[in-house]
Simulated assay, not measured.
Amino acid sequence: MSEAIRIVIADDQALVRGALASLLSLEPDLEVVGQTGRGDEVLELVTGTGASVAMLDVEMPGLDGLAVARQLRDSGLDCRSLIVTTFGRPGYLRRALESGASGFVVKDTPSHQLADAVRRVHAGLRVVDPTLATESLISGGSPLSARETDVLLALRSEGSIGDVAKQLHLSEGTVRNHLSSAIGKTGARNGSEAVRIAADNGWLLS
C-alpha cells in the first residue's frame, strides 16, 4: 500500500478543524498530521510534519489563507494548498489561484468529494468549485484601484475618514475622493455599503 497523503488543516474555528480532521481520517489513504487556528503558523507546521497538502481557510488571524498559499508556493516546499472556505466568492477564487493555490472548494462540499479534492490536488491537478468558476468568469476582476482598496480596508477597521487619512498618510480630501470613486464603482449608496459589497466579492483581502 502506498504511503498516506499527509495533510495539515488551518482554520480559526476549532470545531471546523476537528470535523474536517475526523472526516478525512476515515479515508485509508489520508492522514491529518497537524492542525492550527492561525495562518502564520502553517509554514512551520508543514515544515515540521512533512505535509504535502495544506487545507486553508480564507480568513484567519496572523495571515489569511491566500497569503499562506502564496507563502507555501514561494517556500520551495513540496506542499500544495487547497482552500476550503465558507466564503464562496468569485473574487476569493481568482485571488486564490493567483496566489498559487491548487484548489478552492466550499466547506459544505460532501465529504467524499472533499477527500477526492485532496487526492487530486496532491496529484498535481487543479480543483475548483464549478459554480464559483462560472461566477468568476462572469464577474471579472476587481474594479477597484489599489488605493481605493486600501481606503475601503482602512474604513472597515478604522471607521472614520479622519482615522483612515491618518492610517494611510493621506489628506482627508484625498481619502474622500478615493472613497467616492469606490462607491461609484461598486454601485453602493455610501462608504459602509461599498465596504460590504467589496468584501462580499472578495476584493478586500489584504
Rank of each mutant, 00 (worst) to 15 (best):
L204T: 01
R38H: 13
G124N: 06
A67Q: 14
R147T: 07
M1V: 12
L63M: 11
A117M: 06
L144N: 02
Y92F: 14
E172M: 09
L179M: 14
A154P: 04
E98P: 00
S142F: 02
V106P: 02
D163A: 15
G191N: 03
E41T: 06
V151Y: 01
H112S: 15
N177A: 14
E148W: 02
R119C: 08
Q35L: 14
G191H: 00
L45F: 00
L15C: 03
V195Y: 03
A123G: 14
P90I: 02
V118Y: 04
A117W: 02
G91K: 06
V195L: 05
G140K: 03
S75C: 09
G34D: 07
V195P: 02
I197N: 08
T47N: 09
A14N: 08
S139F: 05
L20K: 07
W203I: 01
G76D: 12
A19K: 14
A67M: 07
D64L: 05
V105R: 04
G48Y: 00
Y92V: 02
P61S: 08
L97E: 06
R126E: 14
S180Q: 13
V106H: 04
R189L: 08
V105W: 02
A67F: 01
L56V: 04
G141W: 01
N177S: 13
D78F: 05
D12M: 10
S102V: 00
E59A: 09
E135Y: 11
A101I: 08
S192N: 11
A123V: 03
L63W: 02
D40R: 08
C79K: 06
L72Q: 12
M55E: 03
A54D: 05
S171D: 14
R38K: 12
G184D: 13
G191I: 02
A54R: 04
S139Q: 15
A194L: 09
A198E: 12
Y92T: 00
S139I: 08
L93R: 06
K185M: 08
Q13W: 11
V58Q: 06
G187M: 03
R120A: 08
I161W: 07
K107R: 14
V164I: 05
V164K: 01
A198S: 15
